[in-house]
Simulated assay, not measured.
Amino acid sequence: MAAHIPSPMPAQDDLVTLKAVTALLRKSPYPLSHSTLKRLIAYYRIPRKRIGKADYVHFSDVLVAQRRWAARECRKS
């Protein structure tokens, strides 16, 4: 029986830059390149906030998208 893992809810203060997301996920089992991250943001319609010259996203939204992307990649192979 598979365990149910609830999706994380975005917190107010988990906004991070796209560059920070790629750095944080670099050591994960399924790291994302900057271009892959941009594709996931577009594909899953993750909202972006533009502050100054940088785009920010909720890290929890990216984690959900990464989990779905990794599951799809595992099914391919």
Rank of each mutant, 00 (worst) to 15 (best):
M1N: 04
A2V: 09
A2M: 13
A3S: 14
H4K: 07
I5V: 13
S7A: 14
S7N: 12
P8G: 04
P8L: 06
M9C: 08
P10L: 12
P10E: 09
A11T: 06
A11V: 06
Q12Y: 09
D13W: 10
D13C: 10
D13G: 14
L15A: 08
L15R: 01
V16A: 13
V16H: 05
T17L: 07
T17P: 02
T17C: 08
L18R: 01
L18K: 02
K19S: 15
A20E: 15
V21R: 01
V21I: 14
L24Y: 09
L25V: 05
L25W: 01
R26Q: 13
R26N: 08
R26G: 06
K27F: 13
S28W: 04
S28K: 03
S28N: 02
P29I: 11
Y30I: 03
P31W: 09
S33H: 01
S33C: 03
H34G: 13
H34N: 06
S35R: 04
S35G: 04
T36W: 00
L37T: 00
K38Y: 05
R39W: 06
R39I: 06
R39M: 09
L40K: 00
L40R: 00
I41W: 04
I41A: 07
I41S: 05
Y43D: 11
Y43V: 08
Y43E: 10
Y44N: 06
I46N: 02
I46Y: 02
P47N: 10
P47V: 12
K49C: 12
R50W: 11
I51D: 08
I51G: 03
G52H: 07
K53G: 14
K53C: 08
A54V: 07
D55P: 01
V57F: 09
H58V: 08
H58L: 06
H58G: 04
H58W: 03
F59V: 04
F59C: 05
F59G: 05
S60H: 03
D61V: 00
D61C: 06
V62P: 01
V64Q: 03
V64E: 04
R67L: 15
R67P: 02
R68E: 13
W69H: 09
A71D: 11
A71K: 03
R72K: 10
E73Y: 10
E73I: 09
C74A: 15
R75L: 15
K76T: 08
K76M: 11
K76W: 10
K76G: 10
S77L: 14
S77M: 11
